[in-house]
C-alpha cells in the first residue's frame, strides 16, 4: 500500500499576530507544521508499522518546507516530495488542492491522508479539495484508520461524542482529526543527522488556473466582550477567585 501524507506549515500562533494594512506579513512570521497534518503523518506511520505501507510526505514548496520534510523523514516516512512552481506563502487552498490532486493523480497512491483542517484554510479544507478534484471517495473528521487490502475503515466523529465506522474502497482521501497515539517526537540532532544522507525530491508542477477569493481585509476581531483581568500574581489571583466564589455562593461551607 502506498500512502501520501499532504502537509503544510502555518504561522505559529504562539507568536503575536500583527496585521499590517489588512494583511498578515507572512514573510516575517515563523511557521510550524499544521498540527492536524502532524496527526495525519503519525497515523500513516502507525499504518506503516502495522502493514509495511510505504509513506510519502508531500508538501507544496511555498518557502521553507524542508524542515518539515526532513522531520517527517526522521520520524519514519519513506520519501519526501516537494512540489515546486514558484508558489508564495499566500497560495490559497483551492490552488493547493488543485496542485496536490494533479500530483497525486500521477502517482496512484492508495490512500491520501492530511489534517482535518488547518488554522488558515479560509477557502476550505485540503482533504475535500483534493478528493473532489480527484473524484475519489473521502471522509474527513476521522480517526482510527485501519487499512485493508482494498478498503480502509475509519471512525468519523460527529458532535456530542457520536461516531460512526465507515468503510471506503481504495483509493480514498482522509481528513485526519487525531492519530491513535500522540505524534512521535524526533530530536533536532536526529533530523540534522538525517539531512546529511536523505534528500527531498523536487517535482516541478504547473500553476493552477482557478480563481482565488477576493479578501478585502484580515483584522483582529473586536470581541463582544473581554474578561476583567486580574494580572499574573498567583496569590492575588487565588484570592480573587476565592472572593468570587464567595460572592457567587459557590464556596462549599
Amino acid at each position: 500500500m502506498r500512502i501520501a501524507v499532504l502537509m503544510k506549515d502555518v504561522p505559529d500562533l504562539v507568536e503575536e499576530l500583527e496585521v499590517e494594512d489588512g494583511a498578515l506579513p507572512l514573510d516575517d512570521m515563523s511557521f510550524v507544521p499544521s498540527e492536524w497534518d502532524d496527526q495525519a503523518l503519525e497515523e500513516a506511520l502507525l499504518i506503516k508499522e502495522e502493514t509495511g505501507a510505504d509513506v510519502t510526505v508531500v508538501a507544496i514548496d511555498t518557502g521553507e518546507v524542508d524542515g518539515l520534510m526532513f522531520t517527517a523523514l526522521a520520524k519514519g516516512a519513506d520519501r519526501a516530495v516537494k512540489l515546486a512552481g514558484g508558489f508564495s506563502r499566500r497560495l490559497a487552498n483551492r490552488q493547493r488542492g488543485a496542485v496536490l490532486a494533479q500530483y497525486c493523480q500521477t502517482q496512484g497512491f492508495d490512500l491520501v491522508m492530511t489534517g482535518v483542517q488547518a488554522i488558515d484554510d479560509l477557502d476550505g479544507q485540503i482533504a475535500g479539495w483534493v478528493a473532489g478534484n480527484l473524484e475519489v471517495g473521502h471522509a474527513s473528521v476521522v480517526r482510527d484508520v485501519r487499512a485493508g487490502a482494498d478498503t480502509v475503515k475509519v471512525v468519523q466523529e460527529y458532535s456530542g461524542g457520536k461516531m460512526a465506522e465507515l468503510e471506503l474502497p481504495l483509493p480514498a482521501v482522509l481528513g485526519i482529526q487525531a492519530a491513535r497515539k500522540p505524534p512521535r517526537y524526533v530530536t533536532v540532532a536526529k533530523v540534522r543527522q538525517l539531512q546529511k544522507t536523505a534528500s527531498v525530491e523536487t517535482v516541478d508542477v504547473s500553476e493552477p488556473t482557478a480563481p482565488t477569493l477576493s479578501v478585502r481585509k484580515i483584522y483582529k476581531p473586536e470581541a463582544a466582550g473581554h474578561a476583567q483581568m486580574w494580572g499574573d500574581d498567583v496569590d492575588e489571583v487565588s484570592e480573587k477567585i476565592v472572593n468570587l466564589l464567595e460572592d457567587k455562593k459557590l464556596l462549599r461551607s
Binding site: 487552498n93 483551492r94 488542492g97 482535518v116 483542517q117 476550505g124 479544507q125 485540503i126 482533504a127 475535500g128 479539495w129 483534493v130 478528493a131 473532489g132 478534484n133 473521502h138 471522509a139 474527513s140 473528521v141 468519523q156 466523529e157 460527529y158 458532535s159 481528513g175
Partner: peptide, 12 residues
C-alpha cells in the same frame, strides 16, 4: 462534521 467533510469536495 458534514460541512467540513462535504464543503470543499462539493466546491471542487
Amino acid at each position: 462534521t458534514m460541512g467540513m467533510d462535504l464543503g470543499a469536495a462539493l466546491a471542487a
